[in-house]
Design a protein around this nucleic acid. Structure first.
Length: 276
DNA sequence: GCCCAGGCGTCCC
DNA sequence: GGGACGCATGGG
């Protein structure tokens, strides 16, 4: 076990914010997360986080994953005070952070995400992991028994699968997209990796992948590459533009922290918004 | 059964 | 560049 103090972080909000699909509430104020081949349990009371791992693993993986080093208070305060919707959204989801997730996993899960609800995405991803992911055994926070779970499958493993096997995981018409993404990741990503440190380059390279368009590429840039100017516009963000900004995209959606503000806005609108 | 989901490719203009 | 349309599947 290892614990830290941190503000501007709320596990429940992050779990529900639609950026990660393998973070779940397991009771007693505790969440489970599977990422980078590790299973973690973490609980929160006020500003204290307790991790099921040791300090070494925290420093190597989870400190980066939870974006502990970024000053979210500064990002929040550097916004237009007169923008009522944005300020409400920031207040409502004040514990949201942009996780630094694995690019291969983001590529696949956000290809899957298109025209699926969040529960449906999660189910689909779990099926892939349980069928084709490597088994993980790890300590639990609240139980003496170790937990058994499954890592996200490797690109190599996915590339070996037939279209039928992929389709059987509930991918629907996205089966060929995922297959193509696996071979792209194995063959092209090592070549492009360096160039992808620049947002505009990363986005255009990703969009050459079949099944990856404007929105999915922005999600990958934001949630894996931590390019905070990337601002995915999905149906909820479009609804915000229509309902709250009279159909005209507000300037914060094209700012250098647009992706962070987008995440507050998305979570707020989706949690409180009513379909009209 | 109906509607819609953190969209995209294709066709057409 | 932008609009219309089809798309597999599951949750509400």
């Amino acid at each position: 076990m290892y614990s830290i103090k941190i503000d501007n972080l709320d596990l429940g909000q992050i779990a529900a914010s639609g950026q990660c699909f393998r973070m779940n509430y397991v009771g007693k104020g505790t969440y489970s997360i599977i990422a980078f081949g590790k299973y973690l349990e973490v609980s929160q009371s006020l500003d204290t986080l307790i991790f099921s791992c040791d300090e070494t693993e925290y420093e190597e993986i989870w400190k980066e994953y939870f974006d502990i080093e970024t000053d979210y208070a500064a990002i929040k305060s550097n916004t237009d005070i007169s923008d009522e919707f944005l300020q409400k959204a920031i207040q409502y989801g004040s514990g949201i952070r942009i996780l630094k997730q694995d690019i291969w996993e983001m590529l696949v899960t956000f290809i899957i995400s298109q025209r699926k609800s969040i529960p449906a995405i999660k189910k689909c991803v779990e099926t892939l992991c349980q069928k084709y992911g490597e088994q993980i055994m790890s300590d639990s926070l609240n139980d003496d028994k170790p937990v058994i779970d499954y890592a996200f499958p490797t690109p190599k493993r996915i590339a070996e699968l037939s279209i039928e096997e992929l389709r059987a995981c509930g991918l629907g018409y996205r089966d060929v997209y995922v297959a193509g993404a696996a071979s792209w990741f194995i063959e092209k990503y090592p070549i492009y990796q360096r160039q992808m440190k620049t947002y505009t380059v990363a986005k255009s390279l990703l969009m050459k992948i079949n099944g990856v368009g404007t929105k999915v590429s922005n999600c990958i840039c934001l949630f894996a590459l931590h390019q905070l100017e990337a601002c995915p516009i999905d149906v909820w963000m479009q609804k915000i533009i229509d309902d709250n900004y009279r159909g005209i995209m507000p300037s914060w959606m094209v700012s250098d922290k647009a992706g962070v503000l987008q995440q507050y806005a998305f979570y707020y609108k989706k949690s409180t918004g009513i379909y009209k």
